[in-house]
Design a protein around this nucleic acid. Structure first.
Lengths: 242, 242
DNA sequence: CGCTATCTTGAATCCCTTCAAGTCGCGTGG
DNA sequence: CCACGCGACTTGAAGGGATTCAAGATAGCG
């Protein structure tokens, strides 16, 4: 089970205060949210929700990484979302969830009770419009990922994935700092629609060509960002090479 | 260019009145929308927007079918959305669009001017919350499609696609009525992350096995819904079905 | 220091793609 | 009226990129 945290973090110190559902709320609106919120923490690899589960909360990720996956009857698994801080789970008019949610790293959620949260969405435009905006951002990201899943080669998939990691969890000062790689190769395979062997082979190829280097299994550094960009297939002149 | 339609359809007669962005609006709110709306029609195959275009409107599809696609530099194309009546284009905080939008059939859009629409989203909770809900529905659908693109075989992709058509554009009285197939096999291939040859082969296989039959190129009938459900990979055993 | 999860690498296989050569259906113009 | 042309679809054969199967290497942790 998850650990309920009595500690009631003050919103003004919250690391996702200006990116999450509450981004545009004033102090009065934060008070309303504060009355219905609670915190929960999960360990790495811990399941949070199963497909079909009733959603007791609308939750925001405060820290850590979670995955959204769907597994077919024969075991084939596809990750359909990588949830990072400020990403959310649930929504108005949603009693249950369609996917499995799993903590990938140690995780903290800020959760709002469903019923009163729905009322806030109904009554507070700052929350409803921010939620719409965030859902549309996620929708664009999901559609971009559909291009990767449907049309990119294994090499392009890996390059795009590494690029995304650098952009989303990398240090602002790009190449000189190491990037955290929170996923195993098996999880990466499920994210990219590949097998773990193919992920290993492509990663090794990038290592051999000195495009990336690994400090340990969980940390890598980009040595040649241009090569990575070219390999991702998203670049105009990327098609000319490779 | 699109044809501007002077005809000002009354919202109360609108075919998508209870499914679109305006679904929860009262008459006063409809009046606000009415003041900033206009209608446009497009011919089949006509481009509506290109990737990167400035979005002058937030638009709802009133009738017809449109596609949302992304094409890579070397020509590989992936459809990332099939827009049917009540689906929308645009959103608050979106000045431009990330994908190409094309009319697949003759199409009618109901469009709201961007700036005043954004103000309505900001001020009218009925609109903001409905928009959030619709965006979340689209997000779930996109994630479901990611499973198809990442993990399903060609046969499963075709079966899932046909199932979806029956559900979304088919007659309520399932098997006895023909279903409209608005896409060419090339477009289907781009939707499913396949080639048109593979689409043709799999369709032929279903035809030979008498799972479906074609009345003409644009209309088919499902002869064996159970076989289709089994082939889609979504059901444990195909047992529980309508 | 050994156990186990994770990752690597090779070889064979397979599903889908690619390339090629048609057929089909329909609107148009001679 | 029907031949023509063209877009859409079909079908076959060859090829290839990713998977599958199978060992083994590595590393993180007790």
């Amino acid at each position: 089970m998850s650990t309920f945290t009595n500690e009631h973090i003050n919103c003004s110190n919250c690391p996702i205060r200006h990116r999450a559902i509450c981004a545009r709320c004033d102090t009065a609106e934060l008070d309303l949210l504060d009355q219905i919120k609670s915190y929960n923490t999960y360990d790495a690899s811990q399941p949070i929700l199963w497909r079909g589960d009733v959603l007791p909360h609308f939750s925001s990720i405060v820290s850590g990484v979670a995955s959204l996956t769907k597994t077919m009857e024969d075991g084939r698994t596809q990750m359909v979302g990588l949830l990072l801080p400020s990403d959310f789970i649930g929504g108005p008019g949603r009693k249950s969830i369609e996917f499995d949610v799993t903590a990938i790293t140690k995780l903290t959620l800020c959760s709002f009770r469903r019923q009163p949260f729905n009322e806030l969405v109904r009554d507070v435009p700052h929350i409803a419009s921010r939620l719409a905006e965030m859902a549309l951002d996620e929708l664009d990201a999901a559609r971009e990922w559909m291009v990767l899943l449907g049309r990119k080669t294994a090499k392009e998939k890996i390059a795009t994935f590494l690029e995304m990691l650098v952009r989303r969890v990398g240090h602002p000062d790009r190449s000189s700092h190491s990037v955290d790689l929170p996923l195993t190769q098996d999880e990466i395979a499920n994210f990219l629609g590949l097998t773990l062997e193919t992920v290993s082979r492509q990663m090794s190829a990038f290592r051999k060509n000195r495009v990336i280097e690994f400090l340990d299994r969980r940390h890598f550094r980009v040595l040649d960002m241009r090569a990575l960009n070219l390999a991702s297939g998203d670049d105009a002149d990327g098609a000319i090479l490779s």
